[in-house]
Every structure is written in C-alpha cells, then in structure tokens.
Nucleic acid binder design. Structure first.
Length: 611
RNA sequence: GCCGCUUUAGCUCAGAGGUAGAGCAACGCUUUCGUAAAGCGUGGGUCAAGGGUUCGAAUCCCUUAAGCGGCUCCA
C-alpha cells in the first residue's frame, strides 16, 4: 500500500467513526482506498444524501483534531468473533445486534492468517491495516458522493450505501485534486460530444442507439481509413455481413442460449406469428415461446463471428491460403441493462472494428503477435499510451463457458505465451474470458479515471468446432482451424469517447471535423474568402467560411470554442496579396502565408497523421 | 436489473402553493470591424410523461421514463 493509500484507508476509518457517532446502529462492511480516494460501505435505514455531508464532515474534522492514535491489536479468531457477535466490531460500543458483515468477513479469512483489529478513539474495526499514526495525520478530507453497492459485489447480497470521499495530507493538495476533477469534467465526452456536435443520443431513436452527427462521422471515417490502411498491409480482406441472422446460426455458435440475456429477443417471421395465431396461442405464451427460441426467427446480431465463420465455410479451404483474415466494421446489438448504459462508452448498438483470423495451430503465435502489434500501433498513433494489458482467463463458474476444458487450457497457454513473446507487461485475471475463449484486453482510463476495455485479442478453439470448420492440410487430410477474434479500437463509439476525452476535443488536424475556418474581416472579402475555401477544398481539406456579421474577435472566439485547428483571417491586405493570415489553435498567430503554401503545409500534417 | 440523486427554452441555470424568468445560442435590423464576445430588437416553454392532493401545482404525493453516480455485467 502506498503512503497515500494508507492515509486514505485511515480516512475511511475516520468516516466510519463519524457515521457511527451520528448513526450508532450502522452496520459497516468494508472501507478500502480506491483510485481517487476511499469509500466505506454501510448498511443503514437512514438514506445518506449529500445533504448529510456537512454534518458528517464536521464530525470527521472533530475526530481529526482529536488526534486519536490508530492502535493495532493482534487478536485470536475466537476473540474477534466474540466481539463481532456482541456488535463491537465496526462500532463504537457493544450493540444488541451482531456486526454481521464483519462476522462474515472474519469467517472468510483463511485460518493461517493472523487476525488484527485497529482502534481509534472508541471505534474498533476488523482490519489488516496499515494505518497512519493518528487521525491527525490525515490533513484534508472531503466526502464526494454516495452510491450503492452490493455486499461483496454480488447482487444476491444485501445492498449497501457506499459513501465516497477523498483525502490528502494537506488542504492544498485536496484543493488541487478537486480543481483537477473539475477540469476533467470539462473533457467529458458526453459534454464535448454535444458541444462539438459529434454525436447525439436521442430517446426518440432508442436508448443506447447513437446517432453519429456529420462532424462525428468525419472522425469515424478518418479512423476507419487509418485502420483500413494498416489492415490492407497486414493482409486482411474486407467483408460485409447483415445485421440480423437466423436464430439457428446463433444456436450453432452458442450465443443462444449462452449469451441470451445480453441479446435483443428473437424477431419471428410473420408466418410464424400467423400459425401461432391459428393455434390460438395467447400473448404471454407466444412471448415465452419466442424468448425460449421455440419459435424460429432472426436475431439482431450480438457479434460478427458466426457470420465470418460461415464465410470461411463458404468453400473448401486449403492450408496454403491460411491464415484467412476477414475484417469488417460490424455493427452489433446487445441488450445492456438500462442502468449500465452511459454516453458512448456503453451502448445497445455499436460498431466493432472486428476481424476474425482463421489459421492453423502453428500459426497462432505469429498471428496473435501481429494482432498485439496492430493494437499497439493504433494506440500509439493516437497517443493513447496510458493503457494496461490484461490476460482474461476462465472463472470458476464453468457454466458460463462453452467447449472442452482441454481446448481451453491449450488456448490459455497459447495466449499467455504469445503475450510474453510480445514482451508486454500484463496482469492475469480469472473470470475475464469471453464465453468462447480467453482474451487479451487493452484497458484505458477515461477523464474521470474509470477504466474501459478498448482493443481486444481473443483466441477461440470452440467456434471452429461448433461450426465444423476445416481446411485441407498438406497431408490431404481435414484439419480444424483456430479462430482469433480481434478489434484494435474495440468499438468505434467507445474509442471516440476515449479520444474526445484524451484530446479534450482538440483533435489533431487529420481527425478534426473542420480543419480550417476562413474568417473574412468584412463582407468586402467574402468573394476572396469563398475562392480561398474552394482552393483548399480542392486539396481535400475540410474548410468553411464564417460569413456571419460579426467582428473578427467574435469569429475567432467562436472558432476557438469549436476547437478548429486553423483559422485563416482575410482582410484587405490578404485579399490584395492573395495570402492568408494564419492563426493556429495551438500555436497562435502565425502571420501571413501564401494560400498554396498553407494548403501544402496542412496537407502534410494531415497525410502524416501527425498529432 | 438494483440503490441513490436529478429532469424548467437548443445549451447553462434561477424560480420552494397564486397561473414561467436570465445569460448564451437562433432570427431580424444597424454596424463592415485586424487575432478570444459590437449595439438594438424579435421569436421560442402542454416546467420529462401520466395520475393524485388542493379553490389553485413547475412547486406537495404516487407511478413511469430518461439522464447522472455506483453495483453486477460488458466493446
């Protein structure tokens, strides 16, 4: 634990102490430090709201001023259990009701581990520590928000109130942190997405179904073209597949029923509807039959892989043509629960920069390495260096996965070996696999510190079996290919969200929806302004002319707020000399430039995709 | 889906039981301007939706929806 984490952990204990001073009956669960601060989970009939924060904070300040030492108490398991039964753990006094969560946590601690308690003032808690010396060491502490969480993160468990706060050793650091958080909120892609007119989420269209506005569409097309160039070089072939497919296809792949709860229900054929009507089937019964897949129909595709598998199977394949790499910007639809939707990061319809590589086992390592290389190229080209890599393996609940354990072990071993070969630092996490195979994910943080999965490389021995895929080997016998699923962006929507926040809306010129805005000083210069715009457009630059009846200062201000990379001021002088007075959003006033020289310069910047 | 909070003009927000307001944006007119906001004027709202309490509801109560913060799940 770092020093700051220790301090925040102690802050959590101070929060707990304060909560108990106010509500002695509170049942405490756990209170760890987290990314930006700390929290404590508490079960309490009173609904804690931000309105309660002032009095809780006042109580906390009092505890800090009191300078209560944190005392570490080594104890026996039975002693601790007795205390918990008497309601004394996570409490200021003994209480008539046992400390249920503490008791449960205690029982979860392995036998060989020592049991320690920490006490400050009257507050006694089951806790491994460590802590700062005394409550006075926590110089600055503030509550930020309250949310809810299930005990131990399991939705079968009781729901707790989670009070979040942050703490630092000095008030100044706290103030700086709060200011940074405020700044970060200005980069929020939901805010910038609306202000810069990149996308919109319209309830009238459907929850979680995004509309890409013209300016956002420009960015998407640039991203697609950028990736398209890389894919062509790596020997990928482009395919297109429909948005819906036969239910049977997804039975074969296992999406139905393994992935059923994440899908829109099947769409039945009109004839199925009619024949059920003839049977006198009632609505509820009909709905049941559709849901359980007893009525045939189509599924809005939740993934592209089954269709790509069918493309592979569309004719006999020879070992000579492997690996077959099929790529598609495929839009998929998933039934995300309402509470988990958010901006462009969690949607019900989104587009993956998907591809499936069909190869022999001996090609796996090279191909996976190629994929990892591709993801890294993409991320570094866009300056997203701050990411971590995770190897996702099966979890303990084997019901959630398809396929033979032997194949899983092979796949997991192969991925682990490829990732090591690539020399990437990574963490290994159980329960993070896809239902058909293990995967390597690239995770980045958004402006508020939340982690999102972008790029992914997944190894799959199972779908080829389910689809009976094969190729003819050099031995003239049929062999089973292996499938690699990979998406360097992950989804274009989520990637856009992260990009918006990374650049704060100030995109590099090649991605900027509008690259140059021409600002005529008066309408005397309109003709030349339009002429100049046309010339720049000929160089395939994205240009507009601000023809509004406004002062130059106002036009500059507007362009700055819209984060246009280049402004070109045109007045009498520029008109007579056929030049532009160029102002760069990042570098300020660059002075007069020849029109064509300027076009050339911007063109270079665009084609080199410089940042 | 669950818990909490929120929802008033395109955006940001005031309005706390007596029948809706500001700034910005939009539109019009005047001004024709040299590197981050010219001036004046105009239009715009079944106060998220539905129900209830009340003589009277943006305001109080209930239900629903969406958004936000989390949890679980995931690109």
């Amino acid at each position: 634990m770092t020093e700051l984490e220790t301090l925040r952990h102690s802050a959590a204990h101070i929060l707990a102490t304060a909560l108990l001073e106010i509500w002695p009956e509170a049942q405490l669960a756990a209170g760890p430090p987290v990314e930006n601060g700390f929290y404590y989970d508490v079960s309490l009939p009173h609904r804690i709201s931000p309105e309660d924060f002032p009095r809780i904070e006042e109580e906390m300040r009092r505890i800090v001023h009191a300078g209560q030492p944190f005392v570490r108490i080594q104890t026996g398991r039975q002693e601790a259990e007795k205390l918990a039964l008497r309601g004394r753990l996570g409490a200021l006094t003994e209480r008539p009701v046992p400390s249920e969560f503490k008791l449960d946590i205690l029982r979860g601690i392995p036998d060989e581990e020592a049991i320690t308690l920490y006490q400050n003032g009257e507050f006694l808690d089951l806790c491994a520590g460590p802590h700062v010396k005394s409550t006075a060491s926590v110089g600055a502490i503030r509550l930020t928000h309250v949310a809810s969480a299930y005990y131990r993160g399991d939705d079968n468990n009781p729901q707790l109130q989670r009070v979040y706060g942050t703490a630092f050793s000095t008030e100044r650091e706290l103030e700086e942190h709060m200011a940074r958080q405020e700044e970060a909120k200005k980069r929020d892609h939901r805010k910038l997405g609306r202000e810069l007119e990149l996308f919109c989420l319209d309830e009238a269209v459907g929850v979680g179904l995004p509309l890409w506005l013209p300016r956002g569409a420009v960015i998407r097309q640039e991203l697609q073209a950028f990736l398209g160039d890389l894919l062509a070089k790596q020997g990928y072939e482009t395919v297109f597949t429909p948005h819906i497919g036969e239910l049977g296809l997804y039975r074969t792949s296992g999406h139905f029923p393994f992935y059923q709860e994440s899908q829109y229900p099947p769409i039945p054929e009109p004839t199925a509807w009619e024949s059920l009507e003839r049977e006198g089937c009632r609505c509820a019964e009909y709905a049941d039959r559709v849901k359980s897949g007893l009525v045939g129909g189509y599924l809005l595709k939740p993934m592209n892989c089954p269709m790509h598998a069918r493309i592979f199977a569309s004719r006999p394949r020879s070992y000579r043509e492997l690996p077959v790499r099929l790529a598609e910007f495929g839009t998929v639809y998933r039934w995300e629960k309402s509470g988990e939707l958010g901006g462009m990061t969690r949607l019900r319809g989104f587009t993956q920069d998907d591809a499936h590589i069909f190869c022999s086992e001996s090609q796996i390592e090279d191909e996976v390495r190629g994929c990892l290389e591709l993801v890294r190229t993409v991320l570094s080209a866009l300056d997203l260096r701050d990411c971590r890599v995770r190897l996702g393996l099966r979890g303990p609940d084997l019901q959630k996965y398809i396929g033979e354990p032997a194949l899983w072990e092979k796949a997991e071993a192969a991925l682990a070996s490829a990732i090591r070969q690539a020399g990437l630092a990574f963490t290994q996490e159980e329960g993070e696999a896809a239902f058909y195979g293990p995967k390597i994910d690239f995770l980045v943080r958004d402006c508020l510190g939340r982690e999102w999965q972008l790029g992914t490389v997944q190894l799959d021995y199972n779908l080829p079996v389910r689809f009976g895929l094969s190729f003819t080997g050099a031995d003239n016998r049929e062999h089973r290919p292996v499938m690699i699923h990979r998406a360097p962006f992950g989804s274009l929507e989520r990637f856009l969200a992260i990009l918006i926040e990374h650049f704060g809306g100030d995109f590099p010129v090649w991605l900027a929806p509008e690259q140059v805005r021409i600002l005529p000083i008066s309408d005397q210069q309109l003709d030349y302004a339009r002429e100049a715009a046309a010339a720049l457009r000929h160089r395939r630059l994205r240009v507009s002319v601000d023809e509004k009846n406004e002062t130059l200062n106002a036009k500059i201000r507007i362009a700055e707020k819209q984060k246009i990379p280049y402004m070109a001021v045109i007045g009498k002088n520029e008109q007579s000399t056929k030049t532009l007075s160029v102002r760069s959003r990042r570098r300020g006033n660059l002075g007069a430039m020849d029109l064509m020289a300027f076009a050339e310069q911007v063109d270079d910047e665009v084609s080199s995709r410089s940042l």
